[in-house]
Design a protein around this nucleic acid. Structure first.
Lengths: 214, 214
DNA sequence: TACAAAAAATGACTGCGGTCGATTTTATTC
DNA sequence: GAATAAAATCGACCGCAGTCATTTTTTGTA
């Protein structure tokens, strides 16, 4: 029966991820070598590379699992009728705190996620997509409540908030923001700005039209 | 006289950067080793590291020079009275085309710029600041023309547009955008959205207030 | 159970980024 | 110009990510 082999492979994969969880968590990502990882998982170094293409892919797989859990938690938050702004700030701050628990951890993750190589691009898109799906129902409700324009393409709305979130994280990595509270403040401010618009309020007839593209 | 020594150092530095320009340009960043760089510059490998702390720092120094030139060119564009939206799209598209001339090139640059390590954070901030300064006068004019809210903190206005630019580049690296024209379209669309706001148009009294923070 | 074919595991090896103590070059002082 | 201090250069060396030819294990078949 070939099911035995499959099972063993799944266990090995799990062992690698568990070793990664422990070692990345304690020694940090940069200071953990693939050989240490292999030893901790009780396998040879070469074997690692028949399960993952690069060291950073192990890392992304780890994040994927945890983010999955995190996003399920968040979707509960997303279900109540709190004003959009507060919910958004809440979700992105949770994400921020998780991603930057460990500075190196977050840097590797974000670099791969935002500017992926050919190797990691598919995995990155998956993570992105899962995140996007979390927001769509949230936005739909906000539209019904009149907190968000009805003619908005929701994917672009997500992109808009997400981009401001990225900027905020970037500011944190650049040392322009130091405390959790600073991050929170900037994020809320930018989100408010995004909602109300950067241009002066015009009469509806003068309002810039919103494009619709695929 | 100690001026001779200084002069020699400047020449060595220049030789390294010229070698980098040639080799990164032809073989690509990843495929050029520091040893090759040293040989091409006619010096030992170790010497490189008394001029630059890491390989990526050489790269950033290179970009800094070129960006300096590019930004001076742009500031000419920024001086006429074209509508803000068009000027912004124009400038960011120029930047985009420059940065992504070479895919690896751009990835390394953006990763270091947006999510820098402790080693490169100062250099990254400098590049950022130079870019910011390009926009401030542009925004001031737009405010006078009534294209931008008068109560806007200009640094945050810059951040807003810059973040949308980053998102667009990220989408390109993720393979969600392929052609130059797609990038242009998304960028323009997001900028319009930012100007007009994501929330429905309310009467001025209902408008969300804009915060003022340092 | 015996045997062959396919799959999986392995660790020696390669190439690279970055370090460091030894060596050479330059500046200074008498 | 000799002696000494300081700065700059160097390449052998280290640790690590990733490869690959070889070995070991598993599976299917008779």
């Amino acid at each position: 029966m070939s099911g035995v082999r499959e099972e063993k492979k799944r266990q090995t994969r799990k062992a690698i991820l568990e070793a990664a969880m422990t070692l990345f968590g304690t020694r940090g990502y940069e200071k953990t070598s693939v050989e240490q990882l292999a030893k901790a998982a009780g396998i040879g170094k070469g074997t690692i590379y028949s399960y993952f293409q690069t060291k950073s892919e192990i890392f992304l797989a780890l994040c994927e699992d945890e983010l999955d859990f995190l996003h399920k938690e968040m979707s509960k938050k997303a279900n109540n009728e709190t004003p959009l702004l507060e919910t958004l700030v809440d979700i992105f701050m949770t994400e921020f705190r998780y991603v930057t628990r460990n500075r190196d951890f977050g840097r590797v993750f974000l670099r791969e996620l935002v500017f992926p190589t050919e190797l990691t691009v598919e995995r990155s898109k998956e993570i992105d997509n899962r995140f996007i799906e979390l927001f769509i129902p949230l936005f739909q409700k906000a539209q019904k409540r009149g907190e968000l324009r009805a003619d908005l393409e929701l994917l672009f709305a997500f992109g808009h908030f997400y981009s401001l979130y990225l900027l905020t994280i970037s500011a944190w990595y650049c040392g322009r923001l130091l405390e959790d509270a600073d991050v929170l403040m900037l994020l809320r401010m930018l989100f408010k700005q995004a909602l109300s618009g950067l241009a002066p309020v015009l009469s509806p007839s003068q309002q810039l039209p919103t494009n619709h593209e695929s």
